[in-house]
């Protein structure tokens, strides 16, 4: 058990006009400490200018995604002991514009999420606004999409996807998984419209099943599985 580790943190201030640098901080650690704890120790005791985004510290809010040792992970969800190194490299997530230090601009990611219409579409809009009955659903119908609705929009899959790195227009694993989640929802009636948009050039066909999204997902959503099942639906158009 180590008592101390080195944090190698990416520092970038766009207002200073200087290129990004790495700064090393020596942090005392205890057992069961996460990378987020270490980063907050740095912010409290060593360098208050370090910027990072975090909130819940328990892998629910999904705001502390960063590249830890080269792989997108939630800082609050990554034990220092599981990394098993003396020097941990912390960088902002790839595939996003960097705002400052470890903070990235996720507006493009959220815009793509919004563009797949992540809400229930009903033919009778008036009835949807003033519902007269419950939308009942069986357990089997629930299991078809439940896994994909566990998404916390942390954006790790988007940072891991090799297609997103190359192609900014690609919707990304998160948005396509949500697209599938709403297609499979038995209460939803917009499947035809959704499948049509999934079949565009920046949609489901750009996925090549590299599986990186599922590898890094902290909630077991498995976006790769959702996209492959979505592709089958897009093939048969139903």
């Amino acid at each position: 058990m180590r008592n101390e580790i080195i944090l190698k943190v990416y520092r970038f201030d766009p207002t200073s006009g200087k290129p990004p640098t790495y700064k090393r901080y020596s942090v005392p650690i205890t057992e069961r400490e996460t990378v987020l704890d270490a980063l907050l120790y740095v912010k409290e005791h060593q360098d208050a200018t370090l910027s990072l985004r975090f909130s819940c510290r328990m892998a629910v809010c999904g705001s502390c995604g960063m590249l830890i040792d080269g792989l997108p992970r939630l800082a609050c969800y990554t034990q220092i002991s599981e990394l098993d190194t003396d020097e941990i490299e912390v960088r902002p997530m790839s595939n996003y514009p960097i705002v400052r230090d470890l903070v990235v601009d996720m507006s493009g990611f959220f815009e793509k999420h919004r563009s797949v219409m992540p809400w229930l579409i009903r033919r009778d809009v008036r009835e949807q606004n003033q519902p007269t009955k419950q939308y009942l659903q069986s357990d089997e119908q629930l299991l078809e999409y439940l896994q994909f609705s566990y998404c916390i929009k942390c954006g790790l899959c988007y940072a891991a996807c090799p297609v997103v790195t190359a192609m900014d227009e690609f919707l990304g694993p998160q948005a396509l998984a949500q697209l599938y989640r709403y297609i499979r929802d038995s209460r939803d009636e917009g499947a035809t419209e959704r499948l049509k948009s999934a079949g565009e050039f920046n949609g489901v066909w750009r996925c090549h099943f590299a599986g990186s999204c599922s590898q890094v997902c902290p909630k077991g959503v498995d976006p790769a599985l959702a996209i492959q099942l979505l592709r089958r639906r897009t093939l048969f158009m139903k």
Partner: peptide
């Protein structure tokens, strides 16, 4: 085409 669509973006490039 799949590879080039990823490398060169925009409607005219496509």
């Amino acid at each position: 085409r799949i590879i080039l669509y990823e490398l060169f973006q925009g409607r005219s490039a496509r």
